[in-house]
Design a protein around this nucleic acid. Sequence first.
DNA 1: CGATAAAAAGATTTTTTTGTCCTTTATTAA
DNA 2: TTAATAAAGGACAAAAAAATCTTTTTATCG
Lengths: 141, 141
Amino acid sequence: MFSKTCKYGIRAVLFLAVNTDKNKKIGVIEIAERLEVPRHFLGKVLQVLKKEGLISSIKGPGGGFYLSKENRKANIEDIVECLDGPSLLNACVLGLPNCSDENPCPLHFQAYACRHGLQYQLRHQSIDELARKIRREEIRI
Amino acid sequence: MFSKTCKYGIRAVLFLAVNTDKNKKIGVIEIAERLEVPRHFLGKVLQVLKKEGLISSIKGPGGGFYLSKENRKANIEDIVECLDGPSLLNACVLGLPNCSDENPCPLHFQAYACRHGLQYQLRHQSIDELARKIRREEIRI
DNA sequence: CGATAAAAAGATTTTTTTGTCCTTTATTAA
DNA sequence: TTAATAAAGGACAAAAAAATCTTTTTATCG
């Protein structure tokens, strides 16, 4: 479903949501260790998220990655679109180039119901709300 | 979502459902042309489906691939499981090894609903029914 | 300023997926 | 029984994704 890039990205953003703010930053090495994820690869992913404005970072001593107030307004769909592209949730499941409601593939309506449901969930899932659930230990990263 | 192997496989099975039976077989070359899919690669996919008993084939002149009565009892989920493995629809969307209802990842319940919906659809979507819709031109392969 | 710490950037390697090619085996028909 | 046809099987190649390594840039602090 999601690429590893995207999986790592979502988890990292949520980790940052729970553990950082403007005054408390964390470096890639620690994030990678905590999430048990390849550190250099994660570095690349964080670079992309930063460039897209979904996370924040400061170089140099005392620097690291963190989520700003602004960053927290994003939702999970933003992360997915940033890392896997918008097509992931919209393209034809069977890869047909001109699949549409008028010209549906065999799984068009079945898949679209489910995927639009998921897309709705991701869009309305704010990072802050998931962070609260993680703090309350209702879910785990 | 699905691998190309799986996309090609699903389309090929439906193509066979519409265009073949015990007395009318079709070769890989023609199937690949009709579906606009790489022919050698499709050959491999069909081999796997045949081994798993999801399609039938006969070597030699007049031979080719076809769907038997028995084959038509399968559903789309069987094809997906055969080609992409059972984990595709069941594994954690974020790739966490021990994600479960008791120990959910941040997207566990959101993803669960949607994916089980899809799985249900695939399981109850008989090949014959889709073939009928293709014949009626309600959908396209 | 110089040393150090951390992200950013670039280059390279490994692994997986996708795609191709060639040989072998089975079947049919002349 | 031989030629032709088609799938099966094995080996190989290309492309994409995942992972690693190295260098450069930016910031901080003594």
